[in-house]
């Protein structure tokens, strides 16, 4: 049953503001589905960042952004 719910959440990910109290296995499955769709952008990454969680799995980081640091000597 929860697999269908996870699928529904993944389909409507753009409208999700917060995951709430999801356990790590569900977060992992969501990450798999969203990564397969190449949907993990900066905004969606926010949903996965939990101070209390001890693991993070993102299977496609291609849409995440990065900036080079400036070196000041």
């Amino acid at each position: 049953m929860w697999l269908i719910l996870v699928q529904k959440v993944a389909e409507n990910i753009e409208n999700v503001e917060e995951f709430g109290d999801l356990p790590p296995p569900v977060m992992r499955r969501l990450s798999q589905i969203l990564s397969r769709r190449r949907a993990v952008s900066s905004k969606i990454l926010n949903l996965f960042l939990r101070r209390t969680h001890k693991e993070l799995n993102i299977y496609d980081c291609a849409r995440m952004s990065t900036l080079s640091p400036l070196l000041v000597t």
């Binding site: 990564s35 101070r51 001890k54 993070l56 995440m64 952004s65």
Partner: peptide
């Protein structure tokens, strides 16, 4: 944001420097 991470699993991370 996740200072207590024990497992970091990231794929397709080419921009990581």
């Amino acid at each position: 944001m996740m200072p207590d991470l024990t497992k970091l699993n990231l794929r397709f991370v080419t921009p990581m420097k």
